[in-house]
Design a protein around this nucleic acid. Structure first.
Lengths: 338, 338
DNA sequence: ATTTTTATTGCAAGCGCTATCAGTATGATT
DNA sequence: AATCATACTGATAGCGCTTGCAATAAAAAT
């Protein structure tokens, strides 16, 4: 391995000068710099990030913590799109990404923040945490490096967040259904450990109440954000509330499950029931019927998270609360009441 | 930041002893070890990975190089599934992942191997490289750390690979079509800078020839692995070869494009044309018609890659050539000739 | 000619850790 | 009593890098 010392020997200069030349300091003669650069080139020198970060206490690395990167996440690929956004922006800003994630199954020995601390990341972006996750508190209180949380609206000394306007997004969905003449609208929600579920429920409620329709708890079902859960929720809706004409689901994945339930019971969407989902996952544009849904720009969420965490790392004063807008995409799974 | 030195001071021992106690050396009195561990706990000590890897010359980090992690890859999510597999296995084996990737647009300043060298990764797994990528050669020859290539069958001093049997996979697809009575079978291929394209073409040829059907170059179209390309290829097939009754596509994504072309021209799948794809992407099971396709276990590819690269890092003698089997999934896009 | 400034370079310390070697005390062996 | 093995602990030297400070020489100012 070629070190700065080798370059010093090769050029007959000191390590100090070599270091300064390579790092663009102005107090080194241009001829000297050229000589050093040439030697570095010839010897194919690469600075050791470990050594550098040891002394600088900066690693130019951001930790990306995604709980549950796993096979189940493949269908909706939310985490992936976010990751793409993070990756693009941090590469641009010359930061590297250290990926942490844990199969929920085996409990991890180390906490995320320990991992981050050991690896000396300069900051972290975190996705997929439940609001009651023990690490969340730890992050908010203890973390001594910037953290940005995706879809968990907390703020603290070292934490910021980026999310979308989930209340508004849900209202978009429900208002659409309302405009189509639906009055009896059920909701398939995720689970109440997810910040977004709480918000989307709120939006659902608000839209209903604005239309003068009383909110009815019995019409809200938890689908756990899974396809299976969506399927079961749909069965229950069909069984217990045959007068429901439309469903708002907190995720497209659950709609996929709901669609399966409908098919099993030989009921057609949107002819007998309108459904609007959330997320606009890739499948939404291809399944049958194509899903009317609330699109979140997950890539943008990742992109902005990276920007925010790096802003915080580099001590720029910026707004630590980023809220993106959602958009209603109307396709085939909704239809006006006859 | 709490260092080993602080622990030494706190316990009245030397840094040497502290280091050894924490690293489980046997030549430390158990009482001493306990005292040290207690102090470490209380002070919330975390070892610095940078310092450690500086002296050990091991980082317990593997670089994952995925060319083109970007929005276009979201639909098929191949890279994501692979990443999941890599992540799961390396987390298990206590390695961290450093993610490298580049938007193809802006040429990068540093090559992958430079990145790896700087960050001192112990090994790397690489996906998405074209066979003529300049970095490929660099990796094969220059890399002084283990590399595992996904879907590029090369082997060298420091390189291994994992791929699937693409010749066989293609034969599976074409034989299925043959069995359904199709004789005039076109192929939509990716591009010939992809190792898998070359192999799948070979499988297509072989299956045809085994059935006594002469191979016809005119029936092979490049779709560039994109939806758009698949669409255009389909138009060309329909226009120039109206007697084609079946198509084998080297990716599901291109089938999605082909399906769009069919719809535009008001031709139905599988009634007027059978199509079999490759990959079994998530959309394949939901689109209409559901796709008959050759499934690759991408997660497994990632998982095995991680295992292999770590085996190589830890100097275990293992087979550096891993070839997984593909599986034909029969759904609705293929049908026997009347 | 002398002092001051400016430009350029090197010495040396130290980041947090591991590892080599030596040292001390204790008990076992002759 | 002298020797040796055993169990533990510490001093110290780096790993490759940055940086504060000192040193030197040349140029500018007095």
């Amino acid at each position: 391995m070629i070190t700065i010392k080798d370059l010093a020997k090769a050029t007959g200069l000191s390590v100090t000068t070599v270091s300064r030349a390579l790092n663009g300091y102005s107090d080194v003669n241009e001829d000297t710099r050229k000589k050093i650069k040439k030697a570095a080139e010839e010897l194919n020198y690469r600075p050791s990030a470990a050594a550098r970060s040891l002394v600088m206490k900066k690693s130019r690395t951001i930790g990306v913590i995604i709980s549950d990167i796993n096979r189940e996440g493949i269908k909706d690929a939310l985490a992936y799109e976010i990751l793409c956004g993070i990756n693009d922006r941090s590469t641009m800003l010359d930061y590297d990404i250290l990926l942490f994630s844990t199969s929920s199954k085996k409990q991890q020995k180390k906490s995320y923040s320990d991992l981050c601390k050991e690896r000396g990341v300069d900051g972290a972006v975190i996705f997929g945490l439940r609001v009651n996750d023990p690490y969340l508190e730890e992050i908010i209180c203890k973390a001594d490096f910037p953290c940005v949380l995706i879809d968990i609206p907390v703020e603290s000394k070292n934490a910021g967040h980026v999310t979308t306007d989930n209340v508004y997004g849900a209202m978009l969905a429900v208002n659409h259904l309302l405009k189509l003449g639906h009055r009896k609208i059920a909701m398939i929600n995720g689970h109440n450990e997810a910040a977004v579920s709480i918000k989307r429920l709120e939006g659902y409620k608000q839209a209903l109440e604005q239309a003068g329709i009383p909110f009815d708890t019995d019409l809200v079902f938890d689908g756990g954000f899974s396809e299976e859960g969506g399927c079961e929720a749909m069965y229950r809706i069909l069984l217990n509330h045959p007068d429901v004409t439309a469903v708002f689901s907190a995720s497209d994945l659950m709609v996929l499950g709901a669609l399966r339930a409908m098919e099993k019971l030989n009921r057609r969407v949107p002819q007998t029931l309108s459904i609007v989902g959330y997320d606009d996952i890739p499948v939404a544009a291809y399944c049958s019927p194509k899903l009317t849904t609330v699109r979140q720009d997950k890539y943008e969420m990742g992109y902005r998270s990276a920007q925010l965490v790096i802003d915080m790392i580099e001590n720029r004063q910026v707004d630590r609360r980023i809220i993106l807008q959602n958009e209603l995409i109307i396709r085939e799974s909704t239809k006006a009441i006859p």
